[in-house]
Design a protein around this nucleic acid. Structure first.
Length: 211
DNA sequence: CTCACGATTAGA
DNA sequence: CTAATCGTGAGA
């Protein structure tokens, strides 16, 4: 099924969604949360503007048994300790000294799993996103650190709740798409888990990140 | 204290 | 293909 782009302003978020994802949803395991937020809308309110994107590509990180995870083998540091808190807490970190990666901690407390949001399809606030990135729509949000740039995500979001008034996820009513599963990107150092099918994306969607 | 390096991107 | 750029974390 070929996905039609909804990028632009002719989009009614409330009409398209069932409502906010609540705290309890994020207490599920990372695979479940990752698959189920595909097609949902990530909404951010800032400076009286609403930015929103449809979640089209995600990865799950499974914690203690996953050598690609920051919390592999129970490793706990100042940076990642937030993963050990209850599900629904936002985990952002700086990569290559340049970009911010955005994750949502999932699972009950002490179970340090996470969902990594890799790409969005812009649906609201496109002009604001362009202001931040100065690119054509096609390249605004089609990568893990591209969409965080477009949305202005940085360390200020570390530890915030994903079911808050400022940033939240709206559940998509009808999920009429196929999900493709592949191995995760950029984790070849993880000998044990690099080939696990923990990356999920909406089949045919043009905003899925490129290799 | 030192220092290697990364769940990436943009550009040649 | 490589440079960019810096907080983090492991080790001395």
């Amino acid at each position: 099924m070929k996905e039609k782009s909804k990028a632009g302003e002719n989009f009614n978020l409330k009409k398209e969604s069932k409502g906010k994802r609540k705290k309890a949803f994020f207490a599920k395991n990372a695979k479940y949360v990752a698959k189920n937020i595909l097609g949902d809308f990530l909404v951010l309110k800032r400076d009286k503007h609403i930015l929103a994107g449809r979640i089209v590509e995600v990865e799950s990180y499974l914690g203690k048994d996953d050598d690609a995870s920051h919390s592999f083998s129970g490793k706990k540091t100042a940076r990642n300790e937030i993963l050990y808190q209850e599900g629904g807490i936002i985990y952002v970190y700086l990569i290559y000294g340049l970009y911010w990666c955005f994750n949502i901690a999932t699972s009950p407390e002490a179970h340090p799993q996470a969902v990594f949001i890799r790409a969005l399809e812009p649906v609201k606030g496109v002009e604001q996103m362009k202001k931040r990135r100065g690119k054509k729509i096609r390249n605004l949000t089609n990568g893990p650190c591209r969409w965080t740039m477009a949305f202005g995500i940085d360390k200020n979001f570390l530890g915030k709740k994903i079911y808050s008034g400022q940033i939240y996820i709206l559940e998509k009513k009808k999920k009429n798409f196929n999900i493709t599963e592949t191995s995760r990107i950029g984790i070849d150092y993880a000998q044990k888990s690099k080939n696990l099918p923990l990356r999920y994306y909406i089949e045919g969607n043009e905003f899925v990140s490129k290799r």
